[in-house]
Design a protein around this nucleic acid. Structure first.
Lengths: 192, 192
DNA sequence: TCGATTGTCTAGCGATGCTAGGATCGAATC
DNA sequence: GATTCGATCCTAGCATCGCTAGACAATCGA
């Protein structure tokens, strides 16, 4: 059995290598540069090996997205748990979210801009994605205000953050004014 | 001169045909289906003709985006000018924006999701884009609130709308609750 | 009427995602 | 220890993509 276990382990390691390499390449040169050939070359295997792990490029993007979602959830929780008071937590959450998007643009793209073949907003949604939303909900639910459904409030706040993140990164919004935008958003939306 | 004028006119017409056909094809089957071959076939010319009008596919996307921006600006102004009172105008603006995005997904993608090679947030920004932002500013500037820069407020409100539009269309947000989301957004952000 | 210019098309290049089919290597059996 | 057999991996290739060179034809000016 031990031989098979070793093989199994190596397969898992190689899969992680593929995902990590795809992410690295995407962050360095953009997702357009992540071709199956280049990716195969970097992991020092041939192209078809990729297809023994993933159905195709989409699934690789999806795997990067899931990893990113887990990291983002952790980052958000770390930031909020280090803050006192609902209002402070929300500000920390917003800043952390935008910083994550700015520092990991390729991962953020995999999560929200590209098609990673993932399900959303239904029961088939993978756990890391639901958990990332849960991380938002934990902090934002506190400041939804009376009579406002916490989930709905979280959706709206999240959408605003997402809009700021994408428009800024795409050059649609000048990046200098990020901080006052966050302050305005928190001031107006959060009831605390 | 008249012959040259006719030719010039025909060229302009063909250029419009290219842009309209690209848009139509994109709305019908998505931008992935808009290949230079298919597009050429639909306009009943060969591929290279496209390149005598545009540098490449990017510029075609950009042309669709500019047309879309002009239409959106017109739709927003039509909606707001039919409303009385700042608050009502903002609600109408938000609904119209989201409806435009939902009804013209390919055009919205061309404007904000895809790379159309357009400049943003600087002096090289094409007129239709600046005008679309101006249309937002006209209505939103009224409800920025005391001491808040109207441009900054517009950016934040716009980002929120953009986030709602993209997340909803990508299946990240269930579409049923769009209306309460808009109400919440306007309630909290607009000072009127 | 003839040469030049303009316009269009055919054909092809390199690169993409993905796959079929053969080679190779290791594990299990006699 | 030799041999079979199955899993694993790679070479080679397909269809399609955006884009372009060069041939060809139509039109214009002289």
């Amino acid at each position: 059995m031990s031989v098979q276990e070793r093989k199994q382990r190596e397969r898992v390691e190689r899969e992680h290598l593929i995902v990590a390499t795809a992410r690295e390449l995407a962050e360095q040169q953009g997702w357009d540069a992540v071709t199956t050939r280049r990716l195969a070359e970097r992991i020092e295997y041939s192209q078809p090996v990729l297809y023994s792990h993933f159905r195709g490029k989409r699934e690789i993007i999806g795997a990067v997205a899931l990893k990113g979602a887990a990291e983002m959830a952790a980052a958000l929780r770390a930031a909020t748990s280090a803050s006192d008071g609902p209002r402070t937590r929300v500000t920390a959450l917003a800043r952390t979210y935008l910083e994550f998007a700015a520092r990991n643009p390729a991962v953020y793209d995999a999560m929200f801009e590209l098609d990673g073949g993932l399900a959303f907003a239904n029961e088939d949604t993978p756990e890391p994605l639901k958990d990332a939303f849960a991380a938002l909900l934990e902090t934002l639910g506190e400041v939804a205000g009376d009579g406002v459904h916490p989930g709905l409030f979280t959706e709206v706040f999240w959408a605003a953050l997402h809009g700021l993140a994408t428009l800024t990164r795409a050059g649609r919004l000048p990046p200098e004014d990020t901080e006052p935008r966050v302050e305005l958003l928190v001031d107006r939306l959060a009831m605390a």
